[in-house]
Design a protein around this nucleic acid. Structure first.
Length: 922
RNA sequence: GGGCGGUUAGCUCAGCUGGUUAGAGCGCCUGCCUUACAAGCAGGAGGUCGCAGGUUCGAGUCCUGCACUGCCCACCA
């Protein structure tokens, strides 16, 4: 007999067991397909979580969606590669380890670079795998044999290769520019790592005395402390207020040096006083103006945002303290002439929240325009599609306005820039490996201390994980990857960079032509793109729609949710709530509901096993001739009764819908379709309907019982396969039990995914079943209203003028009797709708024969409401049907449907009013 | 300063390309321990689809404006 399922559904044990099994059996490891392989390939790169990461709901949503799509493809016969790995996460990891050192009373700088990096590696070894371990709990069906780390030697080698090539192509340059500087991290960061925040600030007006005159020129500034580094005052050439001052000098207050008044469009007459101080070393606009006018650049701060020697007596003060002191001094000396409220957007470091200091420093940049142009083209032309489509526009706009990318970081943890400077002649050498000496003067060289932005290496992953720069078979097969599923947050950080790098470095690449292209993916021929489609998923928020954040303390820990409700239920929640384009407010009550769903499946399975043991021992689900799982909806299903035709038809329809929904990332629709089918149709109706057949001992047909049992098993098998991508664990557990340890394939994850089979659909059966359901519900309804005790079986009378309907009910009288607690059905030739204890529908009247006083007032109230609804709808229908324009323009199907409905409504109105008359309702 | 999204039942959300009666879960009410399941079963109440116009034979769905709300982008003092 089949393996026993425990009485209670306890997800914990089941889930760990199968997660381990899948890994142990290497079920998701993909061998490189040989030449001549023609099966379609599906490749997906896991957005690498940070080594420092702990799994949060965002990951879980992301990974659930990926796993659903991946499992779905694998079951449909694709060679399916899902590539996992982790990111070294330069800044984040360095911070983490530094904090750890702090608790030991150690400092990074005292330790020295080499020791520190060693320490980070140790840390990585100990804790770096945490997030991937957590992933295993989710059942993510990744290929663990191909797991990578962005600092692995082969990937690092590729990073160096890319850097050198870009440099040789003139796409990387080094120079002194204003960059976003985080004084806390003491490193440059890219534009993307700066978050702007509106704050209520002040606009101070400072007057500078004009040299050789008693006049002053007043400038407005939000950052008075930078005046210490002013090297000019700018006015607009067109601004007549200042024409007489062109070419003159002012004496810089507090510092005493003379600086010129220049004309530059930097100064806009409308803003402030129309005159602006120019501080080339501390503002990007001023920097540009400074270049235009060959102004000196005076840096007045150090790397930690403290004033340096150039700031005179303010040296050593923190920049904010310096601001206060500068203002005090200016006020005292009569230079501060105005102070206004002013809201401004200040940039803060994405990671630590420190106010960014625009800082002049020597950095490495990628000349982005040539790369961006091709990356934009790839999306514009449809070589890469972005879903939902509105992100396409966002992407294109961003690409069109992109600035050069500062890729150097003043950190120790990361890919060191492959560049060396000569100690003697300052020559810069960019090379694949360390040069022995300076090629120019023979001097000693030293490697540049900077490392690369983390996103530099992750941007290369689609091809570096497949062996680049070697030309590998893996690349020929798996590149371009098929799909990328990710959050909007990293569209620019990561997705955009992958497209730029992919298009550049994989130019001319051709995917193995023998590999079948799956429909919908990559109909365009350009194979240099890193992926053919990007699906952007929603953000997971808390139940109050707030963004989850540690500081708010509203983070929902997925592992805790899993602990309580199970992975399957949690996955199902995320899938069921993931409508494309809208954020998910994670609500635990939903998860609770889906655990109940899992429990329902569990118990339905127990019911099945109970019957297999009793009715048809040794029964297994049907297999194909080759011994595999049926590809079509259900195999080995034998039709005896209406309910068989009906459920088979429903199953196929649902399978069709689910496949379609998954194909367009409508996860919620797929999940809900399965849920409704399994619970609302399979359990509520089908199982109940076949129970009498299974209980043939009480005088029923034994062979029909055995068929029913076989049908149950085969249908269950199909339903499990349909559900498996969303709830992998419970489906595996039950499915394995059904095969008693000898399944046709090692796991349901490798079984065939059900597809809709038109031959198994039966519209007539669905219509007939709906009528029976209507009759059963009507009787249940009446019983509830009449407060008939559940145990009492009552006789009913049915009036069905159409012979077909009468036959239908007659043939299925057993089902009606059982499902509605009916003792006997008597067919009569007179209308019954007007009687007490009766209900009239368009097709039949049913009367419950039972002596019970009916609360006339309540009944009348109910009828009044119903009549109102009927009349409202009927009036609406008739208005439309009387409209010639409608008849002429609306599709025939709609008109026809409306007409039929109007006829029904007329009948219902007749029956309802008749009854009201009979009851004497007012 | 630009751009994008949301507003549907008490709560959380579906409702794809406009088409007959706007759905689900949770919560609520009534009745049931009916031998798969009380994490269950049966029945029920509850909505002028944010507001105002417009297009259309027909609008929750398309257009315009407004209100509230959330997000992203942005080197202007």
């Amino acid at each position: 007999m089949p393996q026993e399922l425990s009485k209670a559904y306890e997800p914990g044990a089941i889930e760990t067991r199968w997660a381990e099994y899948w890994i142990k059996e290497k079920l998701f490891s993909v061998k490189t397909p040989a030449e001549g392989e023609t099966r379609p390939v599906f490749t997906l790169l896991l957005p690498p979580p940070n080594v420092t990461g702990r799994l949060h709901m965002g990951h879980m949503l992301n990974q659930t969606q990926m796993d659903i799509i991946v499992r779905w493809h694998r079951m449909r016969g694709f060679i399916t590669l899902w590539l996992p790995g982790t990111d070294h996460a330069g800044i984040a990891t360095q911070m983490m380890v530094e904090k750890q050192l702090e608790t030991e009373g150690k400092k990074r700088r005292e330790m020295g670079r080499e020791k520190f990096v060693e320490r980070v590696w140790e840390w990585k070894k100990l804790y770096g795998g945490a997030i991937l371990d957590q992933m295993k709990r989710l059942g993510a069906s990744v290929d663990w044999d191909r797991e990578y780390f962005t600092m692995d030697e082969n990937l690092s080698h590729a990073v160096r290769e890319v850097f050198v090539r870009l440099y040789e192509e003139g796409l990387i340059y080094r120079g002194n520019y204003i960059v976003n500087w985080c004084p806390w991290h003491e490193t440059a960061i890219s534009d993307l790592e700066v978050k702007h925040e509106e704050v209520a600030g002040k606009l101070w007006e400072i007057r500078y005395p004009v040299v050789g005159s008693s006049e002053f020129i007043t400038v407005a500034t939000t950052r008075p402390e930078t005046m210490l580094g002013d090297t000019a005052i700018a006015v607009n050439a067109k601004d007549e207020r200042y024409t007489h001052l062109h070419g003159k000098f002012v004496r810089l207050p507090l510092m005493g040096r003379e600086i010129p008044i220049i004309t530059d469009e930097l100064a806009q007459p409308e803003f402030g006083t129309g005159a602006v101080k120019v501080t080339p070393a501390h503002d990007p606009n001023d920097f540009q103006a400074g270049l235009r006018h060959h102004l000196p650049q005076i840096d007045v701060m150090d790397s930690r945002g403290r004033m340096n020697a150039n700031a005179g007596r303010f040296e050593g003060l923190d920049r904010f303290e310096a601001r206060k002191r500068v203002l005090e001094d200016l006020r005292e000396q009569g230079f501060l002439v105005g102070e206004k409220d002013h809201t401004l957007a200040i940039g803060k470091c994405d990671r630590c929240g420190t106010v960014i200091e625009p800082r002049l420093s020597e950095q490495w940049f990628i000349k982005i325009k040539p790369l961006a142009d091709r990356a934009r083209e790839a999306v514009e032309s449809g070589e890469i599609t972005i879903v939902p489509e509105n992100y396409r526009t966002i992407y294109l706009n961003w690409m069109a306005n992109i600035h050069d990318w500062c890729v150097s970081r003043q950190l120790w943890w990361g890919h060191r820039i492959p560049a060396w400077t000569c100690g003697a002649c300052r020559e810069v050498i960019v090379a694949r490996s360390a040069p022995e000496a300076c090629g120019k003067c023979g001097g000693k060289v030293e490697q540049v201390p900077d490392v690369l932005d983390t996103w530099f290496s992750s941007g290369l992953l689609p091809f570096t994980t497949l062996g680049w720069p070697e030309k590998t078979r893996d690349q020929a097969v798996f590149y371009p990857t098929t799909l990328l599923i990710t959050a909007y947050e990293i569209l620019f950080f990561w997705v955009a960079r992958m497209i730029m790098f992919g298009c550049h470095f994989m130019q001319g690449h051709k995917q193995d032509a023998a590999i079948k292209r799956a429909g919908g993916w990559g109909d365009k021929k350009n194979d240099s793109v890193p992926f053919r489609q990007v699906y952007i998923h929603a953000l997971v928020r808390d139940a109050e729609r707030q963004k989850m954040s540690k500081t708010k303390g509203n983070v929902v820990d997925p592992l805790e949710v899993i602990e309580r409700f199970g992975t399957d239920a949690t996955r199902f929640t995320l899938a069921a709530m993931a409508a494309p384009g809208t954020d998910i407010a994670f609500n635990e009550s939903r998860t609770e509901g889906y655990r109940a769903f899992a429990n329902k499946i569990w118990n339905a399975a127990r019911f099945m096993f109970m019957n297999v043991e009793r009715v048809k021992p040794g029964l297994r689900p049907g297999r194909t001739a080759e011994g595999g799982c049926p590809h079509m909806g259900v195999a080995g299903f034998e039709i005896l009764n209406l309910e068989d035709r009906w459920i088979l038809s429903r199953f196929n329809r649902v399978a069709g819908d689910v496949n379609e929904a998954l194909g367009s990332y409508r996860f919620h629709e797929a999940a809900n379709r399965i849920y409704d089918f399994f619970w609302g149709e399979f359990c509520d109706w089908y199982l109940e309907l076949i129970k009498p057949r299974l209980n043939f001992e009480e005088g029923g047909d034994e062979s029909a019982g055995r068929v029913a049992c076989a049908n149950l098993v085969n249908l269950f098998d199909g339903a499990l396969r349909l559900l498996h991508p969303v709830m992998p664990f419970i489906t595996e557990e039950i499915w394995q039990a059904m095969y008693e340890g000898t399944p046709p394939v090692k796991s349901i994850a490798l079984a065939a995914y059900p597809a809709a089979d038109a031959a198994q659909m039966d519209l007539a059966a669905e219509t007939e079943m709906a009528i029976l359901q209507d009759l059963i519900v009507s009787v249940r309804n009446l019983r509830a209203e009449m407060k008939i005790e559940p145990k009492v079986r009552i006789p009913i009378e049915v009036f069905a003028p159409e012979a077909g309907i009468r036959n239908l009910i007659e043939q299925n009288h057993g089902a009606v009797e059982r499902m509605a607690g009916v003792e006997k059905i008597t067919f009569v030739d007179r209308a019954l709708a007007a009687l007490g204890g009766s209900r009239g529908t368009a097709r039949f009247d049913v009367h419950v024969v039972y002596e019970r006083k009916i609360d006339v007032a309540t009944e009348c109230e109910r009828l009044r409401k119903e009549l109102e609804k009927i009349e409202k709808e009927l009036a609406n229908n008739q208005r439309q049907l009387g409209n010639e324009q409608f008849l002429a323009k609306a599709p025939a199907k709609v008109v026809e449907g409306l007409r039929r409905r109007a006829e029904e409504l007329a009948v219902l109105r007749e029956k309802t009013t008749g009854k009201m008359r009979e009851l004497g309702c007012g």
